[in-house]
């Protein structure tokens, strides 16, 4: 447990000291969302209609940008070998990495989303569903991304490859996340969609670290 927390603490410290990495991911999120009103014309009704999809898809793409570095830096400087020798199971290492990734990119995305939703004229009734959906969905994305990041350690063009591998797996999260926001803006029940997102997270928490741990084992062998 102490090793698990120490690893999260180390990653958070690294993220704070190299703040530009996190800032770039968030800047990408903001810039891409800002492109849609300019590309589609600023009609409020249209923007309110597309806001859930734009916010969710952009949040996914922003997360993809940060995955290729998740293990690659550690693999390059030998840190990954030390982690493998530390006695901490590699699945726990992967879980700690996923938690740190979510705290440094997922959580800021969730906090930025309502600000961007204002610029897209999202109806006020949809905000609770947007926030709750992102809070439940982005950890799943971080966990799935950890699997992808562990698989592409040492690969050529790892950045594109991790997106190609992980994005299809995130489709269920996207579907239910957007459905929750749309139900919210239409004044319908959002609970079923949020429960499905929670179920995906409950499945990903035990399974994704196991897969990522197996992938890391192949990477350090």
């Amino acid at each position: 447990m102490s090793g698990f927390l120490a690893l999260i603490g180390r990653d958070l410290r690294l993220a704070r000291r190299q703040g530009a990495d996190v800032a770039m991911t968030l800047a990408f999120f903001v810039v891409v969302v800002a492109l849609f009103p300019l590309g589609l014309g600023p009609t409020p009704a249209l923007l309110a209609r597309i806001a859930p999809g734009v916010l969710w898809v952009t949040a996914l793409l922003a997360a993809m940008l940060s995955f290729d570095r998740l293990f690659q830096q550690d693999a390059d400087d030998g840190g990954l070998d030390l982690l493998a020798l530390s006695g901490l199971p590699l699945a726990v290492v992967a879980l700690a990495k996923a938690v740190a990734h979510w705290l440094t990119t997922g959580l800021p995305t969730v906090l930025l989303a309502p600000l961007l939703a204002v610029t897209l004229d999202l109806p006020a009734a949809a905000y609770p569903a947007l926030m709750a959906g992102l809070l439940l969905g982005t950890p799943t994305v971080s966990l799935l991304g950890t699997v992808g990041a562990a698989l592409v350690v040492g690969a050529r063009r790892a950045g594109v490859l991790v997106a190609l591998i992980v994005l299809p797996l995130t489709i269920p999260v996207l579907i239910f996340g957007v459905a929750a926001v749309e139900a919210g803006s239409a004044g319908l029940e959002t609970r079923p969609h949020l429960l499905l997102l929670a179920a995906l997270l409950a499945g990903a928490v035990p399974l994704a670290p196991l897969a990522a741990g197996a992938a890391l084992r192949q990477a350090v062998e």
Partner: peptide, 25 residues
Amino acid sequence: GHMALTNAFDDPERGGKAGAVLALV
């Protein structure tokens, strides 16, 4: 994704193993 991943490594053994984990996921 499996095709891209298995061919993305200089060491074919590593590509095969990464692809195998992805296939099971």
